[in-house]
Protein backbone atom coordinates (compact mmCIF):
# COMPACT_ATOMS: atom_id res chain seq x y z
CA UNK A 1 0.00 0.00 0.00
CA UNK A 2 1.21 3.48 -0.86
CA UNK A 3 1.85 6.02 1.87
CA UNK A 4 0.66 9.61 1.53
CA UNK A 5 1.86 10.98 4.86
CA UNK A 6 3.88 9.50 7.66
CA UNK A 7 4.64 11.29 10.93
CA UNK A 8 7.76 10.31 12.85
CA UNK A 9 8.03 11.12 16.57
CA UNK A 10 6.04 14.24 15.84
CA UNK A 11 5.56 16.61 18.76
CA UNK A 12 3.83 19.96 18.79
CA UNK A 13 3.81 22.73 21.40
CA UNK A 14 1.59 25.81 21.35
CA UNK A 15 3.15 29.15 22.28
CA UNK A 16 3.36 30.04 25.97
CA UNK A 17 2.61 26.49 27.10
CA UNK A 18 5.21 24.27 28.74
CA UNK A 19 3.78 20.87 27.98
CA UNK A 20 3.61 19.57 24.44
CA UNK A 21 0.09 19.17 23.04
CA UNK A 22 1.21 16.27 20.85
CA UNK A 23 3.83 13.86 22.12
CA UNK A 24 5.82 11.71 19.75
CA UNK A 25 3.08 10.77 17.29
CA UNK A 26 3.83 8.05 14.72
CA UNK A 27 0.97 7.55 12.31
CA UNK A 28 0.87 6.42 8.69
CA UNK A 29 -1.73 7.93 6.35
CA UNK A 30 -2.23 5.63 3.37
CA UNK A 31 -2.89 6.98 -0.09
CA UNK A 32 -6.43 6.75 -1.47
CA UNK A 33 -7.81 5.73 1.90
CA UNK A 34 -9.86 7.55 4.50
CA UNK A 35 -8.14 7.81 7.87
CA UNK A 36 -10.20 9.05 10.82
CA UNK A 37 -8.88 10.58 14.03
CA UNK A 38 -11.16 10.17 17.03
CA UNK A 39 -10.84 11.05 20.69
CA UNK A 40 -12.31 13.29 23.37
CA UNK A 41 -12.11 17.10 23.15
CA UNK A 42 -8.64 18.45 23.74
CA UNK A 43 -6.86 15.22 22.86
CA UNK A 44 -4.89 16.89 20.06
CA UNK A 45 -6.57 15.40 17.00
CA UNK A 46 -7.30 18.79 15.40
CA UNK A 47 -3.80 19.97 16.30
CA UNK A 48 -2.36 16.98 14.45
CA UNK A 49 -4.61 17.59 11.43
CA UNK A 50 -3.70 21.27 11.34
CA UNK A 51 -0.01 20.42 11.42
CA UNK A 52 -0.26 18.55 8.13
CA UNK A 53 -0.69 21.74 6.08
CA UNK A 54 1.21 23.93 8.55
CA UNK A 55 -1.87 26.15 9.03
CA UNK A 56 -0.59 26.64 12.60
CA UNK A 57 2.00 28.94 11.05
CA UNK A 58 -0.66 31.63 10.67
CA UNK A 59 -0.02 32.30 14.35
CA UNK A 60 3.50 32.89 15.64
CA UNK A 61 5.38 31.02 18.34
CA UNK A 62 4.50 27.33 17.77
CA UNK A 63 7.18 24.69 17.89
CA UNK A 64 7.28 21.51 15.84
CA UNK A 65 9.50 18.52 16.63
CA UNK A 66 10.12 15.29 14.75
CA UNK A 67 9.08 14.77 11.13
CA UNK A 68 5.99 14.84 8.96
CA UNK A 69 6.85 13.15 5.68
CA UNK A 70 4.75 13.96 2.64
CA UNK A 71 5.15 11.40 -0.15
CA UNK A 72 4.87 12.08 -3.86
CA UNK A 73 2.06 10.59 -5.95
CA UNK A 74 3.90 7.29 -6.35
CA UNK A 75 4.44 6.92 -2.62
CA UNK A 76 8.21 6.77 -3.10
CA UNK A 77 9.99 10.06 -2.53
CA UNK A 78 9.18 11.90 0.66
CA UNK A 79 9.87 15.37 1.99
CA UNK A 80 9.76 16.53 5.59
CA UNK A 81 7.23 19.37 5.52
CA UNK A 82 8.44 20.69 8.87
CA UNK A 83 11.62 21.83 7.14
CA UNK A 84 9.76 24.30 4.94
CA UNK A 85 10.69 27.83 5.92
CA UNK A 86 9.89 30.09 2.97
CA UNK A 87 6.33 31.30 2.37
CA UNK A 88 6.57 29.91 -1.16
CA UNK A 89 7.20 26.39 0.09
CA UNK A 90 4.20 26.67 2.41
CA UNK A 91 1.99 27.92 -0.42
CA UNK A 92 3.02 24.94 -2.56
CA UNK A 93 2.37 22.61 0.37
CA UNK A 94 -1.14 24.01 0.87
CA UNK A 95 -1.94 23.52 -2.79
CA UNK A 96 -0.97 19.86 -2.40
CA UNK A 97 -2.86 19.43 0.90
CA UNK A 98 -6.31 21.04 1.00
CA UNK A 99 -8.41 21.68 4.08
CA UNK A 100 -12.11 21.79 4.98
CA UNK A 101 -13.16 23.48 8.20
CA UNK A 102 -15.84 22.83 10.78
CA UNK A 103 -17.94 25.81 9.77
CA UNK A 104 -18.42 26.34 6.03
CA UNK A 105 -16.13 29.17 4.92
CA UNK A 106 -17.36 30.45 1.55
CA UNK A 107 -15.57 33.62 0.48
CA UNK A 108 -17.77 36.71 0.09
CA UNK A 109 -17.84 36.47 -3.70
CA UNK A 110 -19.78 34.61 -6.38
CA UNK A 111 -20.02 30.81 -6.48
CA UNK A 112 -17.83 30.70 -9.57
CA UNK A 113 -15.21 33.06 -8.11
CA UNK A 114 -15.02 30.91 -4.98
CA UNK A 115 -13.81 28.01 -7.14
CA UNK A 116 -11.59 30.03 -9.48
CA UNK A 117 -9.91 31.90 -6.60
CA UNK A 118 -7.58 29.03 -5.73
CA UNK A 119 -7.09 28.11 -9.39
CA UNK A 120 -5.99 31.64 -10.22
CA UNK A 121 -3.61 31.58 -7.25
CA UNK A 122 -2.05 28.43 -8.66
CA UNK A 123 -1.34 30.31 -11.89
CA UNK A 124 -4.17 29.31 -14.23
CA UNK A 125 -5.25 32.29 -16.34
CA UNK A 126 -6.99 30.76 -19.36
CA UNK A 127 -10.73 31.52 -19.07
CA UNK A 128 -11.96 28.33 -20.73
CA UNK A 129 -9.74 26.21 -18.54
CA UNK A 130 -10.98 28.05 -15.42
CA UNK A 131 -14.60 27.43 -16.43
CA UNK A 132 -13.95 23.77 -17.24
CA UNK A 133 -12.18 23.15 -13.96
CA UNK A 134 -14.99 24.94 -12.10
CA UNK A 135 -17.59 22.67 -13.66
CA UNK A 136 -15.57 19.53 -12.97
CA UNK A 137 -14.99 20.58 -9.36
CA UNK A 138 -18.66 21.40 -8.75
CA UNK A 139 -19.72 18.11 -10.32
CA UNK A 140 -17.14 16.33 -8.18
CA UNK A 141 -18.69 17.87 -5.07
CA UNK A 142 -22.24 16.95 -6.22
CA UNK A 143 -23.20 20.61 -6.33
CA UNK A 144 -23.28 21.32 -10.07
CA UNK A 145 -26.96 20.51 -10.63
CA UNK A 146 -28.01 22.81 -7.78
CA UNK A 147 -25.95 25.84 -8.76
CA UNK A 148 -25.32 25.66 -12.51
CA UNK A 149 -27.92 28.36 -13.23
CA UNK A 150 -26.60 30.79 -10.65
CA UNK A 151 -22.84 30.58 -10.80
CA UNK A 152 -22.59 34.35 -10.60
CA UNK A 153 -24.75 34.66 -7.48
CA UNK A 154 -23.13 35.23 -4.12
CA UNK A 155 -21.99 32.07 -2.36
CA UNK A 156 -23.36 33.50 0.88
CA UNK A 157 -26.89 32.74 -0.35
CA UNK A 158 -26.33 28.97 -0.34
CA UNK A 159 -27.51 26.72 2.49
CA UNK A 160 -25.01 25.46 5.07
CA UNK A 161 -24.68 22.05 3.44
CA UNK A 162 -24.28 23.59 -0.01
CA UNK A 163 -21.67 25.99 1.33
CA UNK A 164 -19.70 23.09 2.77
CA UNK A 165 -19.84 21.22 -0.55
CA UNK A 166 -18.71 24.44 -2.25
CA UNK A 167 -15.71 24.53 0.09
CA UNK A 168 -14.94 20.91 -0.84
CA UNK A 169 -15.28 21.75 -4.54
CA UNK A 170 -12.97 24.72 -4.04
CA UNK A 171 -10.34 22.47 -2.47
CA UNK A 172 -10.82 19.62 -4.99
CA UNK A 173 -10.43 22.03 -7.92
CA UNK A 174 -6.73 22.36 -7.09
CA UNK A 175 -6.34 18.58 -7.48
CA UNK A 176 -4.66 18.14 -4.11
CA UNK A 177 -3.02 14.89 -3.02
CA UNK A 178 -4.55 15.01 0.44
CA UNK A 179 -7.67 16.62 1.88
CA UNK A 180 -7.88 17.39 5.59
CA UNK A 181 -11.38 17.54 7.11
CA UNK A 182 -11.74 19.16 10.51
CA UNK A 183 -15.14 18.00 11.82
CA UNK A 184 -16.73 18.91 8.49
CA UNK A 185 -20.30 17.96 9.41
CA UNK A 186 -20.65 19.09 13.02
CA UNK A 187 -22.44 22.29 11.96
CA UNK A 188 -24.74 20.54 9.48
CA UNK A 189 -28.13 18.79 9.55
CA UNK A 190 -28.37 14.98 9.03
CA UNK A 191 -29.26 15.17 5.32
CA UNK A 192 -26.36 17.48 4.50
CA UNK A 193 -24.14 15.26 6.65
CA UNK A 194 -25.12 12.19 4.62
CA UNK A 195 -24.29 13.93 1.35
CA UNK A 196 -20.89 15.08 2.64
CA UNK A 197 -20.11 11.54 3.86
CA UNK A 198 -21.05 10.06 0.48
CA UNK A 199 -18.81 12.66 -1.13
CA UNK A 200 -15.84 11.78 1.09
CA UNK A 201 -16.20 8.10 0.22
CA UNK A 202 -16.13 8.98 -3.46
CA UNK A 203 -13.21 11.38 -3.15
CA UNK A 204 -10.83 8.65 -2.03
CA UNK A 205 -10.63 7.34 -5.58
CA UNK A 206 -8.65 10.44 -6.44
CA UNK A 207 -7.02 11.55 -3.24
CA UNK A 208 -6.22 10.76 0.37
CA UNK A 209 -8.54 11.83 3.18
CA UNK A 210 -7.65 12.57 6.79
CA UNK A 211 -10.67 13.43 8.89
CA UNK A 212 -11.16 14.52 12.48
CA UNK A 213 -14.57 13.66 13.87
CA UNK A 214 -16.40 13.65 17.16
CA UNK A 215 -18.96 11.31 15.75
CA UNK A 216 -17.87 7.69 16.12
CA UNK A 217 -20.60 6.36 13.86
CA UNK A 218 -19.28 8.67 11.19
CA UNK A 219 -15.75 7.34 11.68
CA UNK A 220 -16.95 3.76 11.43
CA UNK A 221 -19.09 4.51 8.35
CA UNK A 222 -16.56 6.28 6.19
CA UNK A 223 -13.02 5.48 7.29
CA UNK A 224 -10.67 2.65 6.36
CA UNK A 225 -8.23 3.34 9.20
CA UNK A 226 -8.84 4.94 12.57
CA UNK A 227 -6.51 6.47 15.12
CA UNK A 228 -7.69 6.95 18.69
CA UNK A 229 -6.00 9.83 20.47
CA UNK A 230 -6.00 10.73 24.13
CA UNK A 231 -4.15 13.53 25.97
CA UNK A 232 -1.73 14.16 23.12
CA UNK A 233 -0.85 10.50 22.49
CA UNK A 234 -1.89 8.21 19.70
CA UNK A 235 -3.26 5.40 21.88
CA UNK A 236 -4.20 2.99 19.13
CA UNK A 237 -4.14 2.92 15.35
CA UNK A 238 -5.53 0.16 13.18
CA UNK A 239 -7.99 -0.85 10.50
CA UNK A 240 -11.30 0.80 11.41
CA UNK A 241 -13.09 -2.51 11.86
CA UNK A 242 -10.51 -3.72 14.35
CA UNK A 243 -10.63 -0.50 16.35
CA UNK A 244 -14.38 -0.69 16.69
CA UNK A 245 -14.81 -4.45 17.12
CA UNK A 246 -11.58 -5.68 18.75
CA UNK A 247 -9.66 -2.79 20.24
CA UNK A 248 -6.42 -3.85 21.92
CA UNK A 249 -6.23 -1.03 24.41
CA UNK A 250 -8.59 -0.67 27.36
CA UNK A 251 -8.80 3.10 26.85
CA UNK A 252 -9.95 2.70 23.26
CA UNK A 253 -12.63 0.25 24.26
CA UNK A 254 -13.85 2.53 27.05
CA UNK A 255 -14.05 5.45 24.66
CA UNK A 256 -15.85 3.73 21.80
CA UNK A 257 -18.33 2.10 24.15
CA UNK A 258 -19.11 5.52 25.59
CA UNK A 259 -17.75 4.91 29.08
CA UNK A 260 -15.80 8.18 29.03
CA UNK A 261 -15.19 11.20 26.82
Amino acid sequence: MKLAIQTKDFSFTYPKTKEATLKGINIPIYANKVTALIGPSGCGKSTLLRSCNRIHDVYPGNSYDGEILLYDNNGEKAENILQYKKENDLINLRQRIGMIFQKPTPFPMSIKDNITYGLKLSGIKNKTELLDRTEIALKGAALWEEVKDRLNNSAMGLSGGQQQRLCIARAVALKPQVLLFDEPTSALDPISTASIEALISELKNELTVLIVTHNMQQASRISDYTGFMYLGDLVEYDVTETIFLNPKEKKTEDYITGRFG
Binding site: I91, R94, G98, K103, T105, F107, Y117, G118, L121
Partner: peptide
Amino acid sequence: PQELREAGIALGASKAQVIYKI
Protein backbone atom coordinates in the same frame (compact mmCIF):
# COMPACT_ATOMS: atom_id res chain seq x y z
CA PRO B 1 -14.24 35.13 11.38
CA GLN B 2 -10.72 33.77 11.75
CA GLU B 3 -11.71 30.63 9.79
CA LEU B 4 -12.17 32.76 6.67
CA ARG B 5 -8.53 33.88 6.87
CA GLU B 6 -7.41 30.30 7.50
CA ALA B 7 -9.50 29.07 4.56
CA GLY B 8 -7.72 31.53 2.28
CA ILE B 9 -4.29 30.48 3.59
CA ALA B 10 -5.28 26.81 3.23
CA LEU B 11 -5.94 27.35 -0.49
CA GLY B 12 -2.40 28.64 -0.94
CA ALA B 13 -2.99 32.38 -0.76
CA SER B 14 -0.40 34.63 0.82
CA LYS B 15 -1.33 36.70 3.84
CA ALA B 16 -1.57 39.91 1.79
CA GLN B 17 -3.81 38.20 -0.80
CA VAL B 18 -6.10 36.95 1.96
CA ILE B 19 -6.37 40.43 3.49
CA TYR B 20 -6.98 42.37 0.29
CA LYS B 21 -9.17 39.89 -1.56
CA ILE B 22 -11.10 38.09 1.18
